[in-house]
Amino acid sequence: MIVDAIKNGIVIDHITAGHAMELYSILELDKLDCTVAVLINVPSKKKGKKDIIKVDTLLDVDFDVLGYVDPNITVSIIKDSKVEKKLEMKLPSTVTNVIKCKNPRCITSTEQELDHIFKLTNAEKKIYRCVYCESKAK
């Protein structure tokens, strides 16, 4: 399958196979006007198969979100058909409004205007806890 190269945009590569649509939804790519290619189960030497998302515009991506969803992701920024920058994601120390706190006793359950902020408390096990009630992200 051939997908056109992009001139100015971003390529989100090395997404764990099957997770592209989750990212598509979190990054709200459905709201874009430009061309977006979602490639699923692309053969990969390293991982067997992977997903890729190509966005034909220089989108301002929240890298913390990408790192949280899949720290193995790489993001290439394409300018004038050349890779200007290649970024490797990592688990962010905090994520804001990506995960919702589900603890009914948490203050976020009643005060709707509060941001849902989670901080990384155990990188090895990828455990994030709500900054308000310290409940584990589910």
């Binding site: 603890n103 006793r105 948490c106 203050i107 976020t108 359950s109 009643t110 005060e111 509060l114 709500c130 900054v131 308000y132 009630c133 310290e134 409940s135």
Partner: peptide
């Protein structure tokens, strides 16, 4: 004192 966890942090 508040029944909701995290209220004093807010």
């Amino acid at each position: 004192r508040h029944p909701k966890e995290g209220a004093p942090l807010v």
